[in-house]
Amino acid sequence: MVQISQTEEDIKISIELNRLVTRKPDVVLLPQYLKFNNPPIFFERHLAQEIDEMASFCRIFKNEARIVLVKKEKGLWPEMFQKLDKEALMQKRLEIADLIVERNKKRDEKALERYDNKRRAEIQKEIQRETDMRERVKQFQENSVREALVVDVRKEAKATPKPDTLQYPPSSGGASRLATPLMRPPMSSVRGSGRINVNFTTQHKRVTPKRESQAAMEKAYAAAGGPNANVQSPMESVDE
């Protein structure tokens, strides 16, 4: 059962559905063509005037299908559908088939383009997410190094220097007080390099006595008639 009604803005068509039908219906909406195919239900019409196919829609409910055709020009149509004979109807079907093929082709191209754009946007988003993550890690490392340097500087500034025990000896007693610095003796000047001359003015000479072996050799030489045979050795003069 099909119910059709129109207003100045649209045409409403209600098609009763069989409860046993579970297949998704095939709905085609063109500027001057309408088809609803859900076996065993088949509804096809050629419109008398043009509609806005992008604004028109079809909704499937449990017991019926509701088709809303939005008119391009507002107003009541005297006749909503064309009356065609068998030959004209076959010619129209061929033209509509070509239009459907062309429309499906364009729809597939647009769907592929939307998928590519969506995939490209997801990849770009993932790259941007990874870039932001690396930047955050780098910033965290720089802040950690900067904070470590600040802490080291503060520790060095708070550290108290050790007192010099030579200049400030530890005080004995309960309360600590500032000790009087000790006076260190001046260091003696370092002796420079130079030369010292030593002169011996004495004429004293001391003869070292000869050994017995050397005296025996001289006596043997003198007995042989050497050039110094008549000369007496110092040791002989002393013995005489």
Results as ranks from 00 to 15, higher is better:
A229M: 10
S237F: 03
E236N: 03
E236D: 11
E236A: 14
F200Y: 11
P234C: 06
E212W: 00
S233W: 01
Y221Q: 06
K210H: 06
T202H: 09
K210T: 04
A224N: 12
I196F: 04
T208F: 03
M217A: 14
V207A: 08
E212M: 03
V238I: 14
V231P: 00
P227W: 00
Q203Y: 05
P227R: 05
K210I: 09
N230H: 05
A229L: 00
T208M: 08
S237I: 11
A222N: 04
V238Q: 14
V238N: 09
N228V: 00
P227T: 06
E236R: 05
A229K: 06
K219V: 08
P227F: 01
E212L: 07
S237P: 01
A222L: 01
G226N: 05
V238F: 07
N230C: 01
N199L: 11
T201H: 07
M217C: 03
P227S: 12
E218K: 04
Q232C: 02
E236L: 02
N230D: 13
Y221W: 07
N230W: 00
A229G: 02
V231F: 03
V198R: 10
A229P: 02
V238G: 08
T201Q: 09
Q214R: 14
A220V: 05
G226Y: 01
E236H: 03
K210M: 12
A220F: 03
R206E: 15
M217N: 05
P209R: 05
S233Q: 11
G226L: 00
N230V: 00
Y221T: 04
A216I: 08
S237K: 12
H204A: 15
H204L: 13
N230Q: 10
K219F: 02
T208C: 06
S213C: 12
A216Y: 03
T201F: 03
I196H: 06
